[in-house]
Design a protein around this nucleic acid. Structure first.
Length: 290
DNA sequence: AAATCGAGCAACCGCAAGAGA
DNA sequence: CTCTCTTGCGGTTGCTCGATT
């Protein structure tokens, strides 16, 4: 029998995505939402396989993604969850909003692994690396807590502990539930599980606008529960001059966040000190002052 | 200044699970 | 129940870029 490959590889493009491809994919998903990924490339006019589109969206284009390195506290959460769950990156990522499993996996392999080894901790077992074999290993959970290093963020970690406990308990319960399934009818309750691929249709009120370090007049979080926050509306003073001259698609890496609000899209430019905002019609991808 | 090396990360691959016909 | 299709996940690869020689 054999599985059908995810795509007909003949004539399909591979490798890094161009901004033009990104544009097409974002345009399609924001216009139509996520549907059958296999159909996306065809409908969006992309010479990619659906899997590649899904990955690109999930790991890079999704509007709610955080950028940059994981913070100390996030790193600590990853370490603790990894101690409890192992390499279940998607489960770990589910407890770190705005982070993807791929990102966490990469960060683990490039940063955390080294860090733990440097500290004399085996990144696989989370036990102290020791040459002696007669050392009695502590129970897994207690042990992983004991080897986790304390640092200047201890206070924050205290807060994380309860978070982690509940996260781990939640996952354990989910596992128990799965294990205890004896009838197919009991498997339908997965409403409490969170999947990183299920969040593209983010509501405006769910988006937090990060405050820039020197934010003064125009940075704060959404607090309104519906519609476009007033603060996201443009004043001509906030409009960066260069936006009038560039194509947003030439390089939209400057996007930090965007969200749909009716037929509008909000985007934030973190490269500017004051997180200037732009609002534009996403159909037909022209933007300007409102 | 050029060559080499290594770290970091985006993207790919193959397998497994889920869903529906 | 079986088969097929789609999606999700984790491991791995390979490219890019900065650091070092």
């Amino acid at each position: 029998m054999g599985r059908q490959p995810c795509c007909d590889k003949v004539g399909l493009k591979k490798g890094p995505w161009t901004s033009e491809e990104d544009k097409k994919l974002i345009n399609f998903i924001l216009t139509n939402g996520q549907c059958c990924w296999r159909a996306v490339p065809k409908l969006a006019g992309l010479l990619r396989c659906g899997k590649s589109c899904r990955l690109r969206w999930t790991n890079y284009l999704r509007p709610d993604l955080k950028r940059g390195l994981l913070s100390e506290s996030e790193e600590q959460i990853v370490i603790d969850l990894h101690a409890a769950l192992g390499n279940r990156w998607s489960k770990i990522a589910a407890h770190l909003p705005g982070r993807t499993d791929n990102e966490i996996k990469n960060h683990w392999n490039t940063h955390i692994k080294k860090k733990l080894k440097k500290m004399g901790i085996d990144p696989v077992t989370h036990k102290p690396i020791s040459t002696s074999t007669d050392q009695e290993p502590p129970p897994p959970q207690l042990q992983q807590e004991s080897v986790v290093p304390s640092h200047s963020e201890a206070d924050q970690n205290k807060g994380n502990e309860t978070f982690l406990e509940s996260a781990i308990i939640e996952i354990k319960e989910e596992e128990k539930r799965i294990m205890s399934i004896t009838s197919p009818f009991s498997s339908t309750d997965n409403s409490d599980s969170f999947c990183t691929d299920e969040v593209p249709l983010i509501e405006p009120h769910e988006i937090l606008i990060p405050s820039g370090p020197s934010s003064s007049t125009s940075t704060s979080s959404f607090s309104s529960s519906s519609g476009m926050p007033e603060e996201m509306q443009f004043s001509s003073l906030e409009w960066p001059e260069y936006y009038n001259n560039i194509s947003i698609w030439d390089d939209f890496n400057f996007w930090d966040l965007l969200c749909e609000d009716g037929d509008k899209i909000l985007a934030v430019d973190p490269s500017l000190n004051q997180f200037s905002r732009l609002v534009f019609d996403h159909e037909p991808w022209k933007f300007g002052l409102l």
